[in-house]
Amino acid sequence: MSRVVTLTLNPALDRSVTLDALRPGHVHRARGTRSDAGGKGVNVAACLADWGVPVAAAGILGQDNAAPFQALLAAKGIEDRFVRIPGETRTNLKLFDAETGDTTDLNLPGLAVDSATLDLVRALLRRDVTSDALVVLAGSLPGGVVPGIYAEIAAELRPRGARLVLDASGSALAAALAAPAEALPFAVKPNRHELEDWVGRPLPTLADVVGAARDLVARGIPLVVVSLGAEGALFAAADSMVHAHPPPTRVTSTVGAGDALVAGLVAGLHAGLDRVATARLAMAFAAGKLGLAGANLPARETVLAIARTVRVESLDVPV
């Protein structure tokens, strides 16, 4: 069984506020609030732990408010590999509009990280990552960290036999995709908007998304997963292109749905599932999480039942 490690360099305490309807410029009365220890890699690790996959979570935390993260990792049985530094981990505000089902994110600045801290994180990764490990590099970067950090980490870990799964955006994603072949990730999971940013043009149709995903595969990335919101997700590889359609789902919170998709992808890779089964499982993780607040999955039987309802369409498009 391969080891799974997630890396979150810029975690956050997610403060979710539910509103009857979001009206810019108006005073609102919150229907409810909750606070969750989060960040992309933390959320991925939480979902994997719920599924029963042994996982370690690495990254950087501010020691002044590390308690919620420590409690989450302990409760879910996630190995804590975070480095603590002085200061507070950032807080992100997520405004959920119950009328439309949309979430508005307000992401605050993170901790400033010095080179010594980053060197320590990288040394711990090199120590912990063994042959055939699955390593999830996820999320934005804190101040003081160069956009090419994910490519640098990939170049260090790939020779050890690790498979890197990247979920990033903006300059961090662009730098990782511009890396030499030996430093490219095994899989990337952009959403449609992030893919549009990378190609530099809108991708209004599925055919446009297929073409952009095909370009990434041609660059040497074995697996490209593009999340499409309510339209599901596209899974592209050199030998296949499939479109997974989500089942009708009651939405409690969209926070972390993309992270749950990544967790389902990693769970499929960890179990050695084929492409179609992996697509079904990834979509079931995302759909199951939509019915729950926080980075949580429903019971295993519920996720498997959802997976059986996911329609996977094989696209007759050469990749």
Rank of each mutant, 00 (worst) to 15 (best):
D36H: 07
A37H: 03
G38W: 01
K40H: 06
G41P: 14
V42L: 14
N43Q: 10
V44M: 13
A46R: 07
A46L: 13
C47Q: 13
C47L: 14
L48D: 13
P54T: 13
V55I: 12
V55N: 12
A56F: 10
A56C: 12
A57D: 13
A57Y: 08
A58N: 08
G59K: 04
G59I: 03
I60P: 11
Q63M: 08
Q63W: 01
D64R: 14
A66W: 01
A67V: 07
P68E: 01
P68H: 03
F69E: 05
A71N: 06
A71S: 09
L72K: 03
L73T: 03
A74T: 11
A75L: 04
G77R: 08
I78W: 02
E79A: 15
E79H: 02
D80G: 10
R81H: 15
R81F: 06
F82W: 02
F82H: 10
V83G: 01
R84M: 06
G87K: 10
G87I: 09
G87P: 02
R90P: 02
T91M: 12
N92K: 01
L93G: 13
K94A: 15
F96Q: 06
F96H: 12
F96L: 15
D97M: 09
D97R: 09
D97G: 10
A98M: 04
T100Q: 03
G101D: 05
G101A: 08
D102H: 12
